[in-house]
Computed example of a mutant assay.
Amino acid sequence: MYPIMFAIGGVHLLNDSLQAVIPAIFPVLKVERGLTFTQLGLILFCLNMVASVLQPVVGYLSDRKPKPYALPFGMMFSLVGIAGLAFAPEYWMILVSVMLLGFGSAVFHPEGSRVSFMAAGSKRGLSQSIYQVGGNTGQALAPLISAFILVPLGQKGAAIFIVVAALAVFILTKISAWYKKQLEQEKLNSRKKVLLSSLGDLTKRQVGIALGLLLVIIFARSFYVTSITSFYVFHLINMYGFTEKEGLLVIFIFLALGAVGTFFGGPMADRIGRKNVIVLSLALPIPLCLLLPHVPFWAAIILLVFIGFFIMLSFSVTVVYAQELVPSKIGTMAGLTVGLAFGMGAIGAVVIGALMDSIGVLPTMVVVSFLPIIGLVGLALPRDQKMTAA
């Protein structure tokens, strides 16, 4: 059902553009509030940690009893959070505001992924890619939001995004009505949909090991992406003499290619296998990531294009892979994988910010360049197969 696929993907874009305001406002807060890198990292930690911890919980509750109108309800918290961020006069108020945004995100993501799955039919990779590319596109807007809205207007410029949150609430109300009708239709037909898995019959031990490996991969990817999206701009300013706006536009290139990679990753996994895409996504960028901190600026831009595309190929694929590992827990697996990505990003923000304060910007960029190597544990994942009709 393509209208629903694109509608939920569009709201994912709106939701993640609200979250993108947080890293986008970092340069403003550093100048206006005089915050340290560690304090900036703690802001991102509060946002992502709330979203990380609550997403699996929301997914689990949704698996037990789906709640269609939780979608607009959760988005209302994001609306309040973005309003609070725009006008917060104190640091602690900023932290509370971003936690409200995190709560709204925690409610949206597992339920949004469920809607995407319900509309997918047999095109799970494509549907999850449409859904996730919406979110990654929203995240990609962070540098543009910073360069063209927040830097000129300051902290209060974030108030513009109250309108974005209100639009998301309106669209989600319509999607929730469709979601409710689908659940009523399933109940009327007295049948329960069964998710066929491309992974075959695995023992509980094999499933547990595979989930563990998947979480390690998400850790490596999320830590590295956070280092680029939230802190690489300071490396560009220090090493190449970029202005703040120029640096942010370079980050936009990375995020935009990441969104493109996310879109192609799902259909590619439908064709060549989910494990193959997951491994390629982390293996191909390794030499590029290792070179990135040391090359001249023109080469850095080229490397960021390829790193952004390849490292995000597996973003939607890891969600589908986890759902097929535990086919009875669609919402829980979506909440776990996407929630962990948020959580690892949260911890990464604090660790990277603290490293920059203690050892400097360039040494920190060198350290994080080794992270994609960890993703090679994906070679040990169970191989998926072509699905057969039930």
Rank of each mutant, 00 (worst) to 15 (best):
L376C: 01
D270E: 02
L371I: 13
G378F: 01
R383Q: 11
V58I: 14
A300Y: 02
L291K: 12
S17G: 06
R191V: 14
F117E: 13
I347A: 14
F264Y: 13
L215Q: 13
I82V: 15
G138D: 04
L195P: 05
G212T: 12
L202V: 04
G84S: 03
M99S: 02
A300K: 07
M365P: 05
L336F: 14
V367W: 03
S358G: 12
F37P: 10
G331N: 14
V338I: 11
K180A: 10
M93G: 12
G154M: 01
V326Y: 14
R383V: 02
L284I: 15
G138I: 08
A142M: 12
V31P: 01
P327M: 11
L304E: 02
K329W: 11
L40H: 15
L14M: 13
S122D: 03
K156Y: 07
G138Y: 09
G9M: 08
S78P: 05
S62A: 12
S369W: 06
F263K: 03
A299H: 08
F223N: 06
P27H: 13
P372I: 11
I359L: 11
V53P: 11
K275D: 04
S227Q: 11
P267A: 05
N136F: 07
S122Y: 06
L340R: 00
G261C: 09
Y179Q: 08
I171Y: 12
G375N: 06
V305E: 09
K181H: 13
A166H: 01
E111D: 03
A346I: 00
K123D: 07
M239Y: 06
G212I: 07
V279F: 10
T38M: 02
V338S: 13
V57L: 14
V194Q: 13
I347Y: 15
L371G: 12
D384P: 00
S122N: 12
M312Y: 13
F263C: 06
F234G: 03
G154E: 01
S222A: 15
F117K: 15
P66F: 14
V216L: 11
F370N: 07
F87A: 06
F309C: 08
V350L: 14
A7V: 08
L85Q: 02
V319S: 07
S78A: 08
A70V: 01
V115F: 06
Y224Q: 13
V57H: 01
V207L: 12
V366D: 01
G308Q: 11
G266P: 08
L188P: 02
I145L: 15
A354I: 09
A256G: 01
F231D: 12
G273L: 00
F231R: 15
V133W: 08
F103C: 03
V57G: 02
G375L: 00
R33M: 09
S227W: 09
P110T: 05
V338A: 12
R383E: 14
Y91H: 01
L371S: 10
V350Q: 14
V317M: 02
T203Y: 03
I301G: 07
L188G: 06
I145H: 07
T173E: 00
S328D: 03
L101I: 10
L85S: 03
Y321M: 01
F117I: 08
D201G: 07
L95A: 04
L257S: 08
V368C: 04
Q39D: 07
V133G: 00
L47M: 02
G261Q: 05
D357R: 10
A299I: 15
K386T: 10
P89V: 05
V351T: 15
S127I: 06
P72F: 00
P72I: 00
Q182F: 04
